[in-house]
Design a protein around this nucleic acid. Structure first.
Length: 470
RNA sequence: GGUCCCAUCGUCUAGUGGUUUAGGACAUCACUCUUUCAAGGUGAAGGCACGGGUUCGACUCCCGUUGGGACCA
């Protein structure tokens, strides 16, 4: 390894939702760049005009920002670089390393299909390479559409993938693939090589689905006299059905995870571990640690299944470890959505302290916190049936009058009052606790009762008890 | 169909020939703590796909089979 600056990139096509597979690839590139003091570059591959959208470009940019993957250069846009591809295409044509193909794409496709059905291998047979000058002139005169094909040199391609080791490909297994379509746009394999070379990308870290393209691309690097970068092909993220994660697997866009109440740090931590492990049983890591520990050599080869249960657990860890001030800021947009605007900072923080340890997502937290801000509790009918009886109503009546007399309405005093009453009535404290919780919160489960009562506040508590007693 | 990639508990993984009765985490179950639910603590169950080699010795190396996956304007 020389001391040349390391330059990596993420090159998404803006053709749909920003999915977690892309975020994971970006993350690994980013970690590698930061670990090596290199540069992380963002390039938008928008040559497929029909499928690219501005919204998708925006989603990528905002998404990377949201999860904290900052880039050093770009975004560059392929659509603004068409002249560059054309110039290189012309160069290959002039050097006879590429040739025009006048074949009809539909015809070729149907030939291919037929061959597959007959179970015989099919590869483009270079028929246009052998066309005479006369015929070519005639076709040009007729204005026949022509694509540009790369003439595969007769050499074995060998490269060392950092993750997968040595990979070898024989020339007869590669067809003369198209580099420029008839409409003048470059194909993926061509544009990507030129962009990476021009942007001096020296490490290409991308998903393993591109491993089959790599020999083609290496041949292009050679034909164009570009230095060949190092390659590292990342394992795929699979759905629970072991198929490549796609739209069919439900929530997969980054925004859906955001909406569901996942924290960027948790998502990043989880994604980092999907295909990589620093060893030593380390799992919860902040970004600094991740950057320090990350190496491509420790990336796995095998594809990984996305397990939302583990993400949920990790998110819960991040929620409970987050300072309540900060957590409050993250939670407020969720509360605002349901028209709750907490402006009682001290109480709000206490509520968070009480609730954050018992949720996995911000939406769960929102539901638990909002209960403190609603006028009426939402009653769980089963809980009511079980705990609100004529007898417990009597108890609650007594309890209410005691609470009413309390001047210092804090958890400690409340607990004393309730326990005293229980022993006077000669019943277990639990026989008061459960009905009281149902009367005040509508539910049998929740944070510890006395803190809950304190945070609900005296007037709300008396009112709620009153409503039940009636 | 061709080419290529992959294979440790249900899931994410540690493991680079002997330190291993294969370690950790999520999920599951039990116990514990406790006013409930969580969190925490303790523990249980659960895995090297299969078959051949190589070797004094294979989860680890090689080959094959099976299974999964990807790519082929």
């Amino acid at each position: 390894m020389n001391n040349q600056e390391i330059r990596v990139r993420i090159a998404p096509s803006p053709t749909g939702a920003l999915h977690v597979g892309l975020v994971r690839s970006a993350l690994y590139n980013w970690l590698f760049a930061r670990h090596n003091n290199g540069k992380f570059i963002l390039r938008i591959e928008d040559t497929d005009v029909s499928r690219s959208t501005q919204e998708s470009v925006q989603a990528i940019i905002e998404g990377f920002k949201w999860v904290g993957l900052d880039w050093d250069e770009g975004p560059y846009f392929q659509s603004q670089r068409l002249n560059i591809y054309r110039a290189y295409a012309q160069k290959l044509l002039d050097e006879k390393k590429a040739y025009y193909c006048y074949c009809n794409p539909e015809e070729l496709e149907s030939e291919r299909q037929k061959a597959w059905q007959k179970k015989i291998p099919w590869r483009y047979d270079r028929r246009c390479f052998h066309l005479s000058a006369d015929i070519k002139a005639r076709y040009d005169k007729e204005n026949r559409p022509k694509a540009l094909r790369f003439l595969i040199p007769n050499e074995t391609v060998i490269f060392d993938d950092i993750i997968h080791g040595t990979i070898k490909k024989e020339p007869q297994d590669i067809e003369d693939f198209i580099i420029m379509r008839a409409d003048g746009t470059p194909t993926y394999n061509f544009a990507v090589v030129i962009d990476d070379a021009e942007m001096r990308i020296n490490y290409i870290i991308r998903a393993v689905e591109h491993i089959a393209n790599t020999p083609k691309q290496i041949l292009l690097y050679k034909a164009l006299n570009f230095p060949i970068p190092k390659f590292a092909h990342l394992p795929l993220i699979l759905g629970t059905d072991k198929k490549k994660l796609s739209k069919r697997h439900g929530a997969l866009s980054l925004w859906e995870y955001k909406k569901a109440g996942f924290l960027p740090d948790a998502i990043i931590n989880f994604l980092a571990l999907l295909g990589w492990s620093p060893g030593h049983d380390i799992e919860i890591m902040d970004r600094k640690q991740m950057i320090e520990l990350f190496t491509l050599e420790k990336v796995n080869k095998a594809n990984a299944i996305f397990d939302i249960k583990k993400l949920e657990w990790m998110n819960s860890v991040y929620i409970k470890n987050m300072a309540s001030e900060k957590l409050g800021k993250e939670l407020k947009p969720f509360l605002n959505e349901i028209d709750i605007m907490p402006n009682d900072d001290e109480r709000f923080l206490k509520i968070l302290d009480l609730t954050k340890v018992r949720v996995r997502t911000l939406t769960e937290l929102r539901d638990m916190v909002s209960a403190f801000y609603q006028k009426e509790p939402t009653f769980d009918q089963q809980a009511v049936n079980k705990y609100i009886t004529p007898k417990t109503k009597e108890y609650l009546k007594l309890l209410q009058s005691r609470f009413e007399k309390l001047t210092d309405f804090n958890a400690l005093n409340l607990e004393n009052e309730l326990r005293n009453l229980a022993s006077e009535l000669n019943i277990k404290a639990a026989e008061l606790v459960h009905p009281c919780r149902v009367a005040l919160t509508g539910k049998t489960v929740g944070p510890p009762l006395f803190e809950t009562i304190e945070l609900l506040g005296k007037s709300a508590v008396l009112e709620r008890l009153n409503n039940i007693i009636q």
